[in-house]
């Protein structure tokens, strides 16, 4: 069941240039599955429409988000101080596949702030006995405390465009990408996800991609965020944001 809640900011920390890790607290938060998202109302009416933000992690009393302040709405949200209240609608959409046979190998590929929803997915896969690895394409390195959360769970491979840290090149050129997996799940810029999906398809590996189209309602009512698919135009907010890439016509 979806809820609209007023949550209190209990932490708001810059974890990489342009990334805020925000912890919100409340009571009776509805259950969340990895890859789902929330709509956050921009404080002070900075934007009329709420901002869709993927869920980093959630419990019955906490919601963790990683937000890049790129527009008026996300800037106003990132400016929230500890103790401020934010209006949140959650949980929204359909997330990643989480059920695999024990011992399956899954690669999680994140680009930029798209690594955020992969954290909860990684936790879920590890708990389920799945062998998960993580491959990130980054421009700026998150701080050690933030990275530690992923590193504690699984092998992490990092790529950068300029070689400033990690592997120099695109995620598709990383040796870890060439291994066999039972599934690749990803979130990041569309060009990255298209390249990953094409390579996965060539190798017969199923893949899931989390999309981020511009949306208004987040509930499947306005039909603004549609993505063309083999089944016609589907709403990223309701039918996604995670889609099996075999369905996408991108």
């Amino acid at each position: 069941m979806k809820k609209q809640l007023l949550l209190t900011v209990s932490s708001n920390r810059v974890v990489a240039p342009g990334w805020h890790h925000m912890v919100l607290e409340g009571t009776d938060l509805p259950p969340v599955t990895p890859g789902q998202f929330v709509e956050v109302a921009a404080p002070h009416g900075a934007t009329l429409l709420n901002r869709p933000i993927s869920i980093f992690d959630a419990t019955a009393t906490t919601l963790e988000l990683v937000i890049a302040p790129v527009g008026d709405g996300t800037k106003a949200i990132c400016d929230a101080k500890v103790g401020d209240s934010l209006r949140v609608i959650m949980p929204l959409g359909k997330g990643f596949t989480t059920e695999f046979p024990v011992g399956s190998k899954v690669l999680l590929v994140g680009g930029g702030v798209g690594i955020a929803p992969l954290y909860m997915q990684l936790c879920t896969l590890i708990d389920a006995g799945v062998k998960a690895e993580v491959l990130f394409g980054l421009r700026s390195r998150p701080d050690a405390e933030f990275c530690k959360q992923y590193e504690a769970l699984a092998p992490i491979h990092i790529c950068t465009d300029d070689g400033s840290f990690g592997h120099h090149g695109l995620v598709t050129s990383h040796p870890a990408f060439g291994q066999h997996y039972d599934m690749i799940q990803m979130c990041g810029p569309k060009p990255m996800m298209r390249a990953v999906a094409a390579s996965a398809a060539e190798r017969g590996i199923p893949a899931e991609a989390s999309l981020e189209n511009m949306m208004a309602c987040g509930l499947g009512a306005c039909l603004c965020c549609v993505e063309p698919t083999e089944k016609g135009n589907l709403c990223v907010c309701k039918d996604g944001p995670v889609f099996n890439t075999s369905l996408l016509t991108w």
């Binding site: 934007t47 009329l48 429409l49 189209n213 511009m214 949306m215 208004a216 306005c222 039909l223 603004c224 965020c225 549609v226 993505e227 063309p228 016609g232 135009n233």
Partner: peptide, 15 residues
């Protein structure tokens, strides 16, 4: 099937 994406843009106090 409706129109192609993008179908929405925010404007001051509206869309």
């Amino acid at each position: 099937q409706g129109n192609d994406y993008p179908r929405m843009a925010q404007t001051p106090a509206g869309m």
